[in-house]
Amino acid sequence: MTNDKNPFKSMEEKFLEKQRAKQAQGDSKVAGTIPPTKKPIEVKKFAKWALVLTALFAIAVILMANIFVVKENEYRVVRQFGEITRIVKDPGINIKIPFIQSVTTLPKNQMVYNVSESEINTKDKKRIIIDNYAIWKITDARKMISNARNIVNAELRMEEYIYSVVLAELGQLTYAEVINDDKDKNNTSSRGDLNDRVTMRVNELLDEGNFGIEVVDVRMKRIDLPQENEQSIYTRMISERQSTAQKYLSEGDAEKRAIEAETDREVTELLATAKKDAAVIHAEGEAEAAKIYNDTFSKDPEFYNLYRTLQSYSKTIGEDTMIILPADSPYAKVLTGYFE
Rank of each mutant, 00 (worst) to 15 (best):
G212E: 02
S164L: 13
V216M: 12
S189H: 05
D182M: 14
L173N: 06
R197M: 02
N229G: 02
F211L: 15
F211Q: 03
L225H: 03
D184K: 07
Y175C: 01
M200A: 12
D217F: 07
L225P: 00
V216E: 09
T174F: 11
R191K: 14
T188H: 11
N229V: 02
I213S: 01
N229F: 04
S190Q: 06
G212H: 02
K183L: 12
D181P: 08
E228I: 05
Q172N: 15
E214G: 00
P226H: 03
V165H: 02
E169C: 05
N229W: 01
V165I: 11
Y163N: 10
T174W: 10
D184H: 11
N210S: 14
N203A: 04
S190V: 10
K183N: 04
T174M: 09
Y163P: 00
L167W: 09
A168W: 06
I179C: 05
V216S: 13
E230H: 13
E228C: 02
I233Q: 13
M220H: 00
A176S: 15
I179D: 03
S190F: 09
F211D: 07
Q231L: 02
L225I: 10
V216A: 11
I233E: 12
L206S: 04
S189V: 07
V165S: 03
L173Y: 07
N210H: 14
N187V: 10
V198H: 02
Q172F: 03
L194K: 06
E177A: 06
D184I: 05
E208F: 08
S164K: 15
L225W: 01
G192C: 09
V166H: 04
D193L: 10
T174P: 09
L170F: 07
E214F: 09
S164R: 15
D184P: 12
G209H: 10
N195R: 08
R197G: 01
K221S: 12
I233T: 14
R219L: 15
N180F: 08
V216H: 04
Q227N: 07
